[in-house]
């Protein structure tokens, strides 16, 4: 493989191991975003300190700040393959930017980054192996426009993984659990400028079905529910801290104190100033 043409694709490797080898697979970090697929055998690895047993067609996605390997360093019998992508920006708590080679929209890249930030194990996810094979063939044959094809295939791989990650969230859950999960995610980052698309992807739905389901289950549209959490959290802050209203507004994800004030009045009947005065005499 000619590395100069694919600076963003830094590894594409198969590993087939026929005898147990000591000190060959210690816990380590990847250089970039690593997508790994088991093709044969059984592996007991530690992923971010958590023990996992992996079988063929299980897929791992690991960010450079996460660790992977066998606790004693042993390489067990079996085979796996991986590719490592080097995005332009891939850092903890920062928006993912893949680079000019990707055709994914900026907003979608951000959503992908958020979902990929936790180490992921996708059990029995066969499509990954097929795409890795295709990428490999394209590079080997080097036919017309193969670079474009490879970039498209990497995009496709990421799209499939992100969708699967979302769906993994809601499989075998009733919607009340999906909603509870959504509530936790929103609460964990109220400052974030959430969009409906982002919320939908994270819990594994398309935005149309998501909006309908949220409305039917909760009585709220997704954005109205978010506002409801933001204002209730703001109320708690106003009652229990000495923070300024502007600080509270920004922490709760309102872009200005005017925006906060008008939303607050609409929902509670009071302006934030009046409300604070009435409740903390």
């Amino acid at each position: 493989m000619r590395n100069d043409q694919f600076l963003h694709l830094c590894e594409l490797t198969h590993l087939k191991n026929q005898t147990v080898q000591l000190a060959r697979w210690p816990v380590h970090k990847a250089a970039g975003l690593r997508i790994l697929c088991i093709t044969d055998g059984k592996f007991e690895w530690s992923i971010e300190g958590q023990k996992h047993i992996l079988y063929p067609d299980d897929v791992l996605v690991i960010c450079p700040w996460q660790t992977l390997g066998h606790e004693a360093g042993t390489l067990e019998i079996g085979a796996f393959e991986w590719l490592t992508i080097l995005p332009e920006v891939l850092e903890k708590e920062t928006d993912l930017r893949l680079g000019a080679w990707s055709n994914l929209l900026e907003g979608d890249q951000k959503i992908a980054g958020k979902l990929l930030a936790a180490p992921a194990v996708l059990p029995q996810f066969k499509p990954v192996h097929d795409i890795i094979l295709k990428i490999e063939n394209e590079i080997k044959r080097a036919e017309f426009a193969f670079q474009t094809r490879v970039n498209q295939l990497i995009d496709e791989l990421l799209v499939l993984i992100v969708r699967q990650l979302g769906q993994q969230q809601n499989q075998r859950r009733d919607f009340s659990q999906v909603f509870q999960k959504l509530d936790q995610l929103l609460r964990a980052d109220l400052e974030h400028p959430w969009t409906v698309e982002e919320m939908a992807t994270i819990v594994g739905f398309g935005s149309t079905a998501f909006t309908e389901k949220v409305k039917a289950y909760s009585g709220f549209s997704p954005l109205n529910y978010l506002i409801n959490i933001r204002i209730s959290e703001a109320i708690k802050q106003m009652k229990t801290t000495k923070k300024s209203l502007t600080d509270i507004a920004l922490e709760m994800g309102f872009y200005s104190s005017q925006h906060f004030s008008s939303t607050f009045k609409k929902l509670t009947g009071y302006t934030p100033g009046q409300y604070r005065k009435t409740n903390i005499r």
Binding site: F220, S232, L267, T268
Partner: peptide, 13 residues
């Protein structure tokens, strides 16, 4: 449950 959120929801609905 958060009493503030419950109250806000009552008002809203």
């Amino acid at each position: 449950q958060d009493p503030e959120q419950v109250f806000l929801t009552v008002l809203y609905v």
